[in-house]
Simulated assay, not measured.
Amino acid sequence: MSGANSSSLTPGFFILNGIPGLEAAHIWISLPFCFMYIVAVIGNGGLIYLIGHEEALHRPMYYFLALLSFTDVTSCTTTVPNMLCIFWFNLKKIGFSACLFQMFFIHTLTAMESGVLMLMALDRYVAICYPLRYATILTNPVIAKAGLATFLRSVTLILPFTFLTKRLHYCQDNLIPHTYCDHMSVAKVSCDNVKVNAIYGLLAALLIGGFDMFCISVSYIMILKAVVSLSSADARHKAFSTCTSHICAIVITYVPALFTIFTHRFGGQNIPHHVHIIIANLYLMLPPTLNPIVYGVKTKQIREGVVKMFFREKENLVMK
Rank of each mutant, 00 (worst) to 15 (best):
N174T: 13
S69E: 04
P292T: 06
M1C: 04
L22K: 10
C85H: 04
G95Y: 00
G18I: 00
F101G: 03
M319S: 13
A111G: 07
C181A: 15
I29D: 01
N270M: 12
G12Y: 11
K308V: 06
A40F: 10
V41T: 05
Q301R: 15
G3C: 08
G268D: 11
L50V: 05
A198T: 07
A226R: 12
F14K: 15
Y125C: 05
K166Y: 12
A235C: 10
T299M: 08
G305Q: 08
S97F: 14
D212F: 04
A239K: 02
V294C: 07
G296S: 13
Y37R: 03
V255S: 02
G267W: 15
T299E: 13
Y130D: 13
P292G: 07
G3H: 05
P288A: 11
M309S: 15
I19L: 00
N5K: 09
M103N: 10
F214P: 06
G45K: 12
A226Q: 10
R153L: 11
V155P: 03
M319G: 00
L230T: 00
E54G: 01
F35V: 15
F311K: 09
A144R: 13
P141N: 11
R124E: 04
A239R: 01
C215Y: 03
A198D: 10
C99I: 07
P20N: 08
R59D: 03
A135N: 11
C129W: 02
A149C: 15
P288M: 06
S219A: 15
Y37S: 04
